[in-house]
Measured scan of single mutants.
Amino acid sequence: MDVFMKGLSKAKEGVVAAAEKTKQGVAEAAGKTKEGVLYVGSKTKEGVVHGVATVAEKTKEQVTNVGGAVVTGVTAVAQKTVEGAGSIAAATGFVKKDQLGKNEEGAPQEGILEDMPVDPDNEAYEMPSEEGYQDYEPEA
């Protein structure tokens, strides 16, 4: 019985440690998101679009440190934060509304985080759909 109880105690310690790591990862992701939003706020009209992409990228980098179902929630929060940063930029006159959601080359930025393969159960990952990809044929 002692062996059984000791095993359960060790398992509990492992769960607590994993929860603490997840909590730490979420806190880091939130900190990076805040950094990115402050970065966007300090940019001029020309830099705002690039700044919004930076927020998304920093958040995406930190999301990889967070495991399990938390990833889905962090990704949703990050996307809403990026959308909010863009709205703030438009409201303050840093950028025109028609410039939001495009990178410096004018290509749409939507789907940055949505296409990231995420499995809350950590069982399997699927690649994003290939609808947006084109076949590449090298020139002879």
Rank of each mutant, 00 (worst) to 15 (best):
M1T: 00
M1I: 00
M1K: 00
D2Q: 09
D2A: 05
F4C: 01
M5H: 00
K6A: 14
K6E: 08
L8I: 04
L8T: 00
L8G: 00
L8Y: 04
S9Q: 03
S9M: 09
S9V: 05
S9R: 14
S9I: 14
K10T: 11
K10R: 05
K10W: 09
K12E: 00
E13S: 01
E13Q: 07
E13A: 05
G14Q: 07
G14H: 13
V15N: 00
V15D: 00
V16H: 10
V16C: 15
V16P: 00
A17T: 12
A18W: 13
A19T: 06
A19V: 05
E20N: 03
E20M: 08
E20T: 13
K21W: 12
K21H: 12
K21F: 12
T22F: 13
K23S: 02
K23Y: 09
G25V: 09
G25Y: 14
V26C: 15
A27S: 14
A27D: 03
E28Y: 04
E28R: 03
E28K: 08
A29V: 15
A29Y: 12
A30T: 10
A30Y: 10
A30H: 01
G31D: 09
K32Y: 14
T33E: 00
T33H: 03
K34M: 09
K34C: 14
K34F: 07
E35I: 06
V37I: 12
L38Y: 15
L38R: 10
L38W: 08
L38E: 05
Y39I: 11
Y39G: 02
V40P: 00
V40C: 08
G41L: 02
G41V: 10
G41E: 02
G41C: 05
G41S: 02
S42R: 01
K43G: 01
K43N: 14
K43D: 00
T44I: 13
T44A: 12
T44P: 04
K45Y: 03
K45R: 13
K45M: 15
K45L: 15
E46R: 11
E46K: 02
E46V: 13
G47R: 09
G47F: 08
G47L: 10
V48D: 00
V48S: 01
V48K: 01
V49G: 04
H50V: 01
H50L: 09
H50E: 14
G51R: 09
G51L: 11
G51A: 15
G51T: 05
G51H: 10
V52T: 01
V52P: 01
A53T: 08
A53H: 05
A53N: 07
A53M: 15
A53V: 15
T54V: 15
T54K: 04
T54Q: 06
T54N: 09
V55W: 13
V55T: 06
V55M: 12
A56Y: 08
A56V: 14
A56P: 03
A56I: 08
K58G: 00
K58M: 10
K58E: 08
K60H: 14
K60D: 01
K60S: 01
E61D: 01
Q62S: 06
Q62L: 04
Q62K: 04
V63S: 08
V63T: 09
T64L: 11
T64N: 06
N65G: 11
N65K: 05
N65I: 04
G67I: 03
G67P: 03
G67K: 13
A69W: 07
A69G: 12
A69H: 14
A69D: 01
V71W: 14
V71P: 06
V71I: 03
T72M: 04
T72Q: 14
T72D: 03
T72E: 06
G73V: 10
V74S: 02
V74Y: 15
V74D: 01
V74T: 04
T75A: 13
T75S: 07
A76K: 12
A76I: 09
V77E: 07
V77W: 13
A78T: 12
A78I: 10
Q79G: 06
Q79P: 03
K80D: 03
K80V: 12
K80H: 13
K80Q: 04
T81P: 05
T81K: 02
T81R: 08
V82H: 12
E83N: 07
E83W: 13
G84Q: 14
G84T: 01
A85M: 13
A85R: 08
A85N: 10
A85Q: 02
G86Y: 08
G86H: 15
S87I: 12
S87K: 03
I88H: 04
A89N: 07
A89G: 15
A89H: 07
A90D: 01
A91E: 09
A91W: 09
A91S: 08
T92C: 03
F94T: 07
F94R: 01
V95W: 10
V95L: 02
K96G: 10
K96T: 12
K97L: 05
K97G: 07
Q99S: 12
L100N: 07
G101T: 14
G101D: 12
K102Q: 01
K102G: 04
N103F: 06
N103S: 08
E104T: 07
E104L: 12
E104Y: 12
E105R: 09
G106R: 05
A107P: 14
A107M: 13
A107Q: 02
P108W: 07
P108D: 05
P108N: 11
Q109F: 09
Q109P: 07
Q109V: 07
Q109H: 14
E110N: 12
L113D: 13
L113S: 14
L113P: 13
D115V: 11
D115F: 11
P117S: 05
P117T: 12
D119I: 04
P120N: 09
P120W: 08
D121V: 11
D121K: 07
D121P: 07
D121N: 04
N122W: 07
N122S: 08
E123N: 14
E123C: 06
A124D: 08
Y125C: 05
Y125P: 04
E126I: 15
M127S: 10
M127W: 04
P128W: 08
P128V: 04
S129H: 07
S129F: 10
S129M: 06
E130A: 05
E130F: 09
E131R: 10
G132L: 05
G132H: 12
Y133R: 05
Y133V: 14
Y133E: 03
Q134W: 02
Q134V: 03
D135C: 07
D135P: 06
Y136V: 10
Y136F: 11
Y136G: 04
Y136L: 07
E137S: 09
E137P: 05
E137Q: 11
P138D: 05
P138G: 07
P138T: 08
A140V: 05
A140S: 10
A140E: 02
